[in-house]
Simulated assay, not measured.
Amino acid sequence: MSPISATALRRAMQSFLPSLVPVRFVAEDGTTAPEPAGYTAPDEAQLREAYRRMVIGRRFDTQATALTKQGRLAVYPSSRGQEACQIAGVLALREDDWLFPTYRDSVALVSRGVDPVEVLTLLRGDWHCGYDPVATRVAPQCTPLATQVLHATGMAEAMRRRGEDRVAMAFIGDGGTSEGDFHEALNFAAVFRAPVVFFVQNNKYAISVPLARQSAAPALAYKGVGYGVRSEQVDGNDLVAVLAVLTAAVDHARAGNGPFLVEAHTYRMDAHTNADDATRYRDAAEVEAWRTADPLTRLEAHLRGRGVLTDEDVAADREAAEAFAADLRARMNTDQQVDPLELFDHVFAEPTPQLREQRALLAAESTAQEV
């Protein structure tokens, strides 16, 4: 077999390379940017629905943050400023596709249709997962960095082997791309052509570690090239662009062309969690500069400029978001009755002798304390 020519090799490599600059459809002020080659903008109905979901998602995020201050949640990792990524990731998938989220992707779960109280069950400390992953096609929110990308790859490969027309999408942060699990998942997915989309939300900090201390690559999207994974980078605060790129990535994976890596350049407006002091590692000027790129106000300005969104629409969406938040407050303002013996439920399909012994010991101790 003759060796591949230099020209053919360059062409092959170029097919995997991301755009030199992040894909963008809409500028910070809401005006239309030059349309990038190779991508199709979502239609007006999709954008109108995306805006509605972003308004609700932003209000949910604000309400969840308030619940931590009221003692109703143990912790909450805000995704304020990342709503374009959260909503676009959900809209790019079909209902029978699988979503593998991180702990910061609560807004995506709410947009997916998961009950917000069930979404917050993990963060309240009641259960490891408050919703049914099989019924929702949403894996449990993952706190360990990058382990969910292996789970997504495994699910995608299983669906491929069964001949199912489904795709898995794994959300991951920039810090997670430094983990070994991330690289193992990319390599496996590429070799077996698993229908999985790796969606990196690069919000510039892994807790307090800036991107420059994590990677020397020109962009995280280039990390896919060495594994033979088609890659792209996108303006993560431009909902139009994120949805266009993710839709193309999902179509690519669903068509049997293998995995796709998308890096979205965005920013975490709030602290890592309510337990973090972000002022210790970033200054106010940096945060303020990113406010001009707010994904919600950008999409609103864009839709208003196109005549798709009116004052009445904005008022109605905000009213619906307030009703959503009020319902969440009412249902979260209760003390849950927890059973310590639930610790042993769902560990194994068939409990091991050791688990039965531990459960019996805890039951006996609990009974003795009650007496």
Rank of each mutant, 00 (worst) to 15 (best):
E365Q: 11
Q141M: 13
D105R: 04
V229F: 10
L309N: 09
T102R: 08
I87Q: 04
T68H: 05
D339I: 06
C129I: 14
Y205A: 09
R161L: 13
Y103F: 15
Q141Y: 08
A108L: 01
S79T: 01
R298A: 05
A253E: 03
P351E: 05
R58S: 02
L9H: 11
E179G: 03
A190W: 14
G175V: 06
V287C: 06
V138L: 06
P22K: 08
R53M: 01
A349C: 06
S106G: 11
A364K: 15
G154Q: 09
E357T: 11
Q82W: 02
V90T: 09
A190T: 13
R254Q: 11
R137G: 03
Q86F: 00
Y103H: 15
S111P: 05
D165T: 10
A6E: 15
V196K: 13
L109M: 07
E365T: 08
T310A: 11
M159S: 14
A84R: 02
A74C: 04
I56S: 01
R318Y: 05
S111E: 06
S178H: 03
F199V: 00
L150E: 09
A316I: 00
A33S: 03
A249P: 05
T68D: 01
R331S: 00
E322V: 06
A244Q: 03
R291N: 11
A320W: 00
A278D: 15
A315K: 02
T32F: 12
A285R: 10
A12V: 10
H128Q: 09
R254G: 09
V114A: 08
M169D: 01
S366P: 04
Q358P: 01
E44L: 09
Q369L: 13
R94D: 15
N257S: 11
L91I: 02
S79V: 02
P77L: 04
T32Q: 15
L211V: 07
R10E: 06
E350G: 02
F188P: 14
S215P: 00
E164W: 11
A84C: 01
L47I: 03
D294E: 14
A88H: 12
F192H: 15
A33Q: 00
R230Q: 15
A190V: 08
R94W: 07
A152R: 07
E322W: 03
P77F: 02
D43R: 12
R213Y: 09
G256R: 02
S15V: 12
L67N: 05
P101T: 07
V114R: 04
R52F: 00
T68Y: 08
L355M: 12
